[in-house]
Simulated scan of single mutants.
Amino acid sequence: MNSAKRRQPKFQREECVVLVYKYFMTKNNGSNQNQVCEDLSKFYRIRAKKLGYKIDDTFRNTPGIEMQFGTLKNLDKDYKGIGFTNSSKLCRELVEEYYEKPDVIIKEAEEIINKYEEE
């Protein structure tokens, strides 16, 4: 294997929509964030395989999803702590859209989840 550090592919819209949905769902209903991140990692991996992507052990792993949640905390208007500041433009736009029209993001996320659920 190449010794150079491999970067993860950029999150696609479907992934960001579900990430934003799960972040706010977790925040608003008190779900266990660690479990949600683990479940989200599994979902992303299933999605990637169904789309025919070749993935490795680090692809959308749980620690990476936890870091993505950290970037969303920085965008969360109600979060009083400090989150990570390296969020993508796409995630920033989707968080703003969530604040403006949460029902639209929730509906889109649920449709995406249903589309890739394991049979």
Rank of each mutant, 00 (worst) to 15 (best):
G52T: 06
S88N: 00
N2W: 07
F11C: 05
C91M: 14
Y23S: 09
L94I: 15
K10G: 07
S88Q: 07
Y116G: 03
E108T: 15
Q35L: 02
G52R: 01
N86L: 05
E119L: 00
V95E: 13
F59H: 03
K73M: 14
N2Y: 10
K22D: 01
E96A: 14
V36Y: 00
E66D: 07
A109W: 04
S3N: 13
P63M: 12
K10R: 09
L19F: 09
E97D: 08
E117D: 10
M25N: 11
K77T: 14
L90G: 05
S87Y: 10
D57Y: 02
F84K: 15
E38A: 14
K5V: 10
N32Y: 06
M1I: 03
E15S: 03
A4C: 13
D57C: 08
K80F: 04
K73Q: 15
E14W: 00
E110Q: 15
N34Q: 15
M67R: 15
N61E: 14
I46T: 14
K10L: 13
T71H: 01
Q35S: 06
G70V: 14
S3T: 12
F69S: 02
G30T: 05
D78S: 14
C91H: 02
E118M: 04
S31A: 13
R6K: 10
T58Q: 10
I105S: 04
I112E: 12
K49F: 06
K73I: 10
T85I: 03
S31M: 06
E118D: 01
E96M: 11
I106Q: 02
E118V: 03
I112R: 01
K54V: 04
C16F: 02
C91G: 03
K10T: 03
P9R: 08
S87K: 05
K89A: 09
N74M: 12
V18F: 06
N74P: 05
T71L: 04
R7D: 10
K10W: 05
E119N: 04
Q35T: 04
G30S: 09
F43K: 12
T71S: 05
Q8C: 08
Q33Y: 07
C91Y: 07
A109P: 03
V17E: 06
K54G: 08
S41L: 08
L51P: 08
N114R: 11
E108V: 14
V95A: 13
